[in-house]
Design a protein around this nucleic acid. Structure first.
Lengths: 161, 161
DNA sequence: ATTTATGCAAATCGTTTGCAAACCT
DNA sequence: AGGTTTGCAAACGATTTGCATAAAT
């Protein structure tokens, strides 16, 4: 039941994608939701993208998708823990696969000029040190912390002058 | 170390606030902008608030202000470096005084339930360690980094269950 | 057969903008 | 005077929603 990604160039479906779909299906089922072809297409697109995608980018990359359904399905996928919402300073919400599905904890370099988002990660010792501080902060403030977000805002190579 | 004494909504100008207004005036002038009473009122409100404010909150706190002017002036104050824009996961943009005006580098605890934002800070050793990593990342990626943002997303005491 | 998802178009709502009057300097 | 800022109302645009049809179980 495999769907070949229908886009321009090197969109090669990797072997490991099956597990991804299986995991997505499990999470949706847990939420009493179906893993429809539209949702599957979204997961496929996000898995293939090198950075978080806006809804506009999603629509550009896949002819068959409709705007309203994309919004609805991204919301559902987010609620099911399949997708993460990425907020930047511009007016477009972006989406990426949930970190615990990809197993790749990372952060974002956000260009204040063009809005481009690029991934990066930091040494695990630093992550651990941060997590420890966060636990303290949460405890003192009565918050229960779900996750953290650490972004760098700056100017990409293109946008510097 | 500045002490922020205001809490109620009185039109009382506090002693230490003078420096703040002076600094704001300098930055606006540098941008060929005037420090009008509306802009002054915004700085006053943000200085008195214990957390970043939405436009709605600003309007609630000061009768004389108009929505469109508040938006326009916050944009101008941001461009002049007097105010920082705080982006969370909800649909409201928030604003706070620029960190280098208050001299208080901090981060945000964001409640995923009600959108409340609470400030916190981390040990300076951790900030330094982060800054060092960020310099490397920026260098490798061709970005010039302006600032970073590190938030905790979770559930406040009220919103847990 | 019944529930759930989709597509289209219309509505929503935070934010932006056009324009004439009020405000500096 | 000459340029800016303001207030009001209208416009904008990303996202949401109502509803009839199509798909899934």
């Amino acid at each position: 039941m495999r769907r070949m990604a229908a886009n321009t160039a090197s969109a090669h479906v990797i072997g490991g994608t099956e597990d991804l779909h299986a995991a997505a299906a499990v999470r949706l089922t847990r939420d009493h939701q179906r893993y429809t072809s539209g949702r599957r297409a979204l997961v496929e697109l996000l898995a293939a993208a090198p950075h978080p995608l806006t809804v506009v980018e999603v629509l550009e990359r896949h002819e068959g998708l409709t705007q309203s359904s994309v919004y609805r399905n991204l919301t559902i996928l987010e609620a099911a823990g399949v997708v993460d919402r990425v907020v930047t300073d511009d007016e477009f919400t972006r989406f990426e696969l949930a970190e615990d599905l990809t197993g790749h904890h990372h952060h974002h370099l956000i260009c204040a000029g063009c809005g481009t988002v690029k991934d990066f990660s930091v040494p695990s010792e630093l992550e651990s040190a941060m997590d420890e501080v966060f636990r303290d902060v949460a405890h003192q403030s009565g918050f229960s912390v779900g996750h953290h977000r650490m972004d760098l805002i700056g100017w990409c190579a293109n946008c510097q002058q």
